[in-house]
Write a protein that binds this DNA or RNA. Structure first.
Lengths: 108, 108
DNA sequence: TTGACATATGCTCATATCGGCATACGATAC
DNA sequence: GTATCGTATGCCGATATGAGCATATGTCAA
């Protein structure tokens, strides 16, 4: 999953699909890539479940399945404290408590 | 950045570092990997800024820099609507509005 | 200085990955 | 039916990536 999304062009495909269901050819034109490459990237994205396909006549309509990205979101969220303002505030509180603790605790 | 984190072992390193600053050898033992591989992975992580180093005697202390993960968080968050309950609720509201609109709109 | 320790780097091999091209396959149009 | 469109797949060559091993570099201890 992480691997599938590590490819810039695959992320580009997902970004286009975020705008709605698209047949392969529209993706080809939207991204300026060769059709076989797009099909290959779509295959990878399909295999990890981040896109779904639907046959419609001779076209294959691809649509985004954002659910598959949740594992990434969850993983990266465990590191959120680094940039989240909420956690900054929490750090301040903890720092305060620590100061007080050291104040009337034993030495150092 | 996405690429750096696409490697399972590199994510494992970050997970260990989440527990606090560590010298290379501790990472080696914690992960059961060969020391050169750990150094190489650390190099990649360093190059994208997700870890920082500090020299301490003959050891090199590595620590996590979660800030570097924010781009990933931001990117994946744009797809959050797929699984977020808040967005599910919003969808319900929108669906309601749509029903009403169709109710007293033109045909279909 | 010499030696041991901690880490980084270089080399090689095996494997994966991507692009480009040709082509196969399925569905529709004629 | 045959032609054509839309898409997928196979093959090739180039490049990247990771493991394993040896070794270089830097730091401290004796």
């Amino acid at each position: 999953m992480f691997n599938a999304v590590a490819e810039p062009r695959r992320r580009a495909i997902l970004d286009v699909l975020a705008g709605g269901e698209q047949p392969v050819n529209d993706l080809v034109h939207a991204l300026g890539l060769a059709q076989p490459q797009v099909s290959k990237h779509l295959r990878v994205l399909r295999e990890v479940g981040v896109v779904d396909v639907r046959d419609q006549g001779r076209q294959r309509m691809y649509r985004l399945n954002g659910n598959a990205l949740k594992p990434i979101h969850d993983w990266v969220s465990t590191y959120e404290r680094a940039w989240s303002e909420r956690f900054d505030a929490l750090d301040d509180v903890l720092e305060d408590l620590k100061q007080k603790e050291e104040g009337h605790g034993s030495d150092e």
